[in-house]
Nucleic acid binder design. Structure first.
Length: 427
DNA sequence: TCTGGGGTCCTCGGGCAC
DNA sequence: TCTGGTGCCCGAGGACCC
């Protein structure tokens, strides 16, 4: 029996018109990775808090200025409203829509409820964003049943315990599970048994792949590569010319159904930043400098709350014509002091000669590189040798101050003492 | 029609160390 | 002492994701 029990159109277009779903008891052999994605999450949470909004076209986004749509209800999507579209344009497409400013406190609270449900099903949960996660359910079959049953159970629990709907993709790999949940939207379950992976992928457009955006798709399509199946047949050197060698290898693997990424339960932030778009483009350098200081202060505050320091500060300046430049500087001494980050940001800004009107400035701080992965997860001797090499090289470059600190961080965690996230998995 | 804000990851060229 | 290969970091830019 085919995985597809209902088909209502082509590929998903974001408005649910291409929805494809499976029955929960469809063949799910080998489909132990689930991707769960909330449907129109921000809009759904707003409806949860104000039931009079149910059934209305909703646009989540700041109603004024230069903001864009963060989320839209399916009622609004039927008018062509999409995420990332300027709010002004969305209102023109759907003048009857209710525009609601985003409230992340509310969204985070509901997200926590949903993630708790996931963690009650399996310890192997990888939150991907506020409204989606991967779950590895291969080790909990005896507890809850097959992946299809588990997907159906999660959907039922989220709907009844939280009050919103979600879509689930079940497959042998993260990539296919993610594609499947997208196709099942809204409020659906799509199972791709492992043996049907290649057939499932073959006729899908390359644009549907996770990681292929407009630019990559355009480059592929210009060479006649429109379907994932085409990625398998094109000579590899031609694919490399289209997207570069690393992307070519990755895309070829994904097209062949290979995706070695496991569900990782730990994730470490690598940078924090703030940026702001002005309502009206700014020319006055003093205004821009003081804005950079303000952003640097906010960044520093977050660094201190997270108890880490930055080794590299970068700024971003977007001009009126939307061209963007970034500048960064690695510090001789790591810091979490706003004034210091602000000084560096201002210095970087002053070194940019272009003085066109500016629409956006941003400040970002990279986490201090401690040369072995921020959590110090040493897999084996090879990792350690690589770290030692990097530290030696850095010592030669920068002197011993920063390097001693990095070496200490590595050593204090202990070689081999930190468990790899995968070690927490079920058997 | 005029493009947010928060991120991650990749590529590429240059410089440097071993 | 010089050279080439290798591998790392840095910095800039870009693509992509939600």
């Amino acid at each position: 029996m085919s995985v597809v029990s209902a088909r209502m159109g082509g590929m998903g277009r974001g408005d649910g018109s291409g929805r494809i779903v499976s029955a929960p008891d469809a063949d799910d052999t080998g489909a132990g990775i689930l991707h769960v994605d909330m449907d129109a999450f921000y809009a759904a949470v707003e409806v949860l808090h104000d039931p009079t909004l149910r059934g209305l076209p909703l646009i989540i986004g700041a109603p004024d200025g230069r903001s864009v749509v963060s989320s839209a209800s399916y009622e609004a999507r039927r008018y062509g409203v999409r995420s990332a579209m300027p709010v002004a344009q969305a209102i023109r497409l759907c003048p009857s829509a209710r525009v609601v400013p985003p409230d992340f406190t509310k969204y985070r609270a509901v997200s926590a409820q949903v993630m708790t449900i996931f963690e009650e099903v399996t310890p192997l949960v990888e939150p991907l964003s506020i409204d989606e996660a991967f779950l590895d359910v291969r080790g909990v079959r005896r507890l809850w049943g097959s992946p299809g049953r588990i997907g159906a159970m999660i959907r039922h629990r989220v709907q009844h315990e939280v009050g919103i709907t979600c879509s689930v993709g079940a497959a042998a790999t993260k990539h296919v599970a993610k594609m499947a949940s997208t196709m099942a939207k809204p409020d659906g379950l799509l199972i791709v048994p492992e043996a049907e992976t290649l057939d499932f992928l073959a006729a899908k457009p390359v644009r549907a792949m996770w990681g292929v955006g407009p630019k990559t798709a355009e480059s592929l399509e210009a060479r006649g590569i429109r379907l994932i199946g085409d990625l398998r047949s094109i000579p590899f050197p031609a694919l490399e010319r289209a997207v570069g060698s690393a992307s070519a290898s990755r895309l070829r693997d994904l097209a062949d159904g290979r995706d070695p990424r496991s569900v990782e339960t730990t994730r470490v932030e690598k940078s924090v930043g703030h940026e702001e778009t002005f309502e009206i483009d700014v020319v006055d350098p003093d205004v821009l400098r003081s804005e950079l200081l303000r952003l640097a202060d906010r960044v520093a505050g977050r660094l201190r709350r997270a108890d880490w320091e930055t080794s590299t500060v970068s700024i971003k300046v977007r001009f009126a014509d939307f061209s963007t430049v970034t500048r960064s500087q690695t510090l001789s001494e790591p810091t979490s002091v706003g004034q210091r980050i602000g000084e560096v940001a201002r210095g970087l800004f002053d070194a940019i000669e272009r003085r066109d009107p500016v629409r956006l400035v941003g400040v970002r701080a990279e986490r201090l590189r401690d040369a072995g992965g921020a959590l110090g997860l040493w897999d084996d001797d090879a990792d350690w040798r690589r770290v030692e090499g990097a530290l030696d090289s850095a010592q030669a470059r920068f002197g011993s101050g920063m390097v001693t600190r990095a070496r200490h961080l590595g050593a204090s965690r202990g070689r081999g003492s930190a468990p790899h996230p995968r070690a927490h998995g079920l058997d």
